[in-house]
């Protein structure tokens, strides 16, 4: 018998009491002003939120982000911003090591925890979300859910190899519980809420 069959047959030989799944339809927390909740959560984890009237305001808004202004290599996944590194033409993600700034669309935002959902569905190298020195995500303000239960209800998991909730910049508190922003991944995260 191979290990799989052995494990499964051992498990099946045990008789456990019947236990049903709970209903996840509950009165989960909703917020009066979800975007205000989202903003305060992102700020509490070291990120920044900027509110834009339309996507057309993106270039002007980014022009005020120091990391963007100083960036040498820029990758953009949004039409309004022109980058100088084309992801689709990069064969090996290792080449992205020198990217200073990346800006991408986020599918939706979660008020409860300040997270933005992104996937690698239209992104040829998922490493870009993590290897860039600075990251900006652009999310329509009407794409905001209150809590994670609503979030999972709208995600179709399995359609892309990676889907990730990003909440704030990369961080660590592994040295004496002192918070340090910029552990391995982006040193800053800016979320543009549009609309």
């Amino acid at each position: 018998m191979n290990s799989k069959d052995r494990i499964l047959s051992d498990l099946r030989a045990q008789r456990l009491p019947v236990a049903e799944l709970p209903s996840l339809v509950q009165a989960w927390t909703r917020y009066e002003d979800p975007s205000a909740q989202f903003t305060s959560l992102v700020e509490s984890v070291g990120g920044r939120v900027a509110r834009l009237a339309s996507r057309g305001d993106l270039p002007a808004a980014l022009a005020e982000v120091p990391a963007f202004v100083a960036a040498q290599q820029i990758v953009s996944g949004v039409a309004e911003i022109v980058g100088n590194v084309d992801l689709a033409r990069v064969d090996d993600p290792h080449a992205l090591e020198m990217v200073d700034f990346a800006v991408f669309p986020g599918e939706f935002a979660v008020a409860e925890n300040g997270a933005v959902w992104v996937t690698d569905e239209r992104v040829s190298h998922r490493a870009i979300y993590f290897i860039t020195q600075h990251l900006a995500l652009v999310v329509p303000v009407d794409q905001m859910v209150h809590n994670l239960h609503e979030a999972y209800a709208r995600i179709a998991l399995g359609t892309s190899s990676l889907g990730v909730f990003i909440s704030g910049p990369s961080k660590t508190a592994d040295i004496e519980q002192s918070l340090v922003i910029g552990a391995h991944g982006p040193r800053s995260l800016t979320v543009f809420l549009v609309g």
């Binding site: 925890n113 300040g114 998991l157 359609t159 990676l162 889907g163 909730f165 909440s167 991944g185």
Partner: peptide, 15 residues
């Protein structure tokens, strides 16, 4: 924390 900075869902290998 309300959530970790990265909560990654992997389905299959990347291309």
């Amino acid at each position: 924390q309300p959530i970790t900075a990265y909560t990654s869902h992997f389905h299959g290998p990347r291309p």
